[in-house]
């Protein structure tokens, strides 16, 4: 009952062009049937994410570990709430990040869980920068 060959083939890596995404905007792309949020973060959002003491977080992880070095403004996360799989809404909640409408989990501008029932941060999918304005997810 595991995924068949065509499902696996359809889950191959995809390339996303980042040049049309302005600062402060974000886009949602689908990869393997999952929504992936790609946020072009503002300076304020980055500073907020880095100002938090890591040890105080429910799922401690530094912002640097969640983005690619040299591309600090880009946050790429799987937009599926780690509680029960709903899709959080971007740019909502108290932490300038994501807010899940189902059971009220709130994530910060680094996609880390800050408040609510979710146990973990929004996962970062495997991706790499092909060029300065293009990433490959998968």
């Amino acid at each position: 009952m595991n995924p068949d060959a065509s499902t696996i083939a359809a889950g191959a890596p995809i390339e996303v062009d980042l040049s049309p995404v302005a600062e402060g905007q974000d886009i949602k792309v689908f990869w393997r049937g999952k929504p992936i949020y790609i946020s072009h973060r503002t300076k304020k959002q980055i500073d907020e994410a880095r100002a938090v003491p890591v040890a105080s977080l429910p799922d401690p992880q530094s912002d640097e570990a969640r983005v690619k070095a040299g591309h600090d403004q880009w946050l790429v996360v799987i937009g599926i709430c780690t509680h029960l799989g709903c899709i959080p809404i971007a740019h909502e909640g108290n932490y300038d990040g994501f807010f899940c409408p189902c059971h009220g989990s709130q994530y910060d501008s680094s996609g880390r869980i800050r408040q609510g029932p979710a146990p973990a941060n929004l996962p970062v999918p495997p991706y790499q920068f092909v060029s300065d304005t293009k990433i490959q997810i998968g």
Partner: peptide, 25 residues
């Protein structure tokens, strides 16, 4: 989505069980 995700709470094997239930990602 919510009910199948309940199984992802199982430590270690949860995610694989959910993939098995879904037959996809």
């Amino acid at each position: 989505t919510v009910i199948t995700n309940l199984f992802s709470a199982i430590p270690y094997v949860g995610e694989s069980i959910v993939t098995l239930l879904w037959g996809g990602y």
